[in-house]
């Protein structure tokens, strides 16, 4: 089972990489980009027996630093 975890900086935490990307887009003459935030996508291939609760724990204990980051877990749509 493929699980996707999106790790993003919390609102209000300065994102220097996002700012640099934003600046680079502007220097390439792309207009209308108001803000850029950079994050991480982590893909896990896990046994179907792994629960959502366990994945939450993985995020809290290692994959995200919850002092500065939020995470969002995307599970595959369950087969009917």
């Amino acid at each position: 089972m493929k699980v996707r975890i999106f790790v993003t900086l919390k609102d209000g935490v300065l994102d220097p990489q996002g700012k640099a990307i934003h600046h680079a887009l502007e220097s390439l003459d792309f207009k209308g980009v108001n803000d850029v935030r950079a994050g991480k996508l982590i893909e896990l291939d896990v046994d179907p027996s792994v629960t959502r609760e366990e994945i939450d724990k993985m995020c809290d204990k290692l994959l995200a630093n919850t002092v500065i980051e939020n995470y969002q877990i995307e599970l595959p749509e369950t087969a009917s």
């Binding site: 935490v13 300065l14 220097p16 990489q17 640099a20 630093n65 002092v67 500065i68």
Partner: peptide, 17 residues
């Protein structure tokens, strides 16, 4: 030490990258 929680806060990418 911040990652272990022994100290508060976090060390992020330098603001000027």
């Amino acid at each position: 030490l911040t990652e272990t929680g022994l100290l508060p806060g976090a060390l992020m990418r330098n603001s000027n990258i």
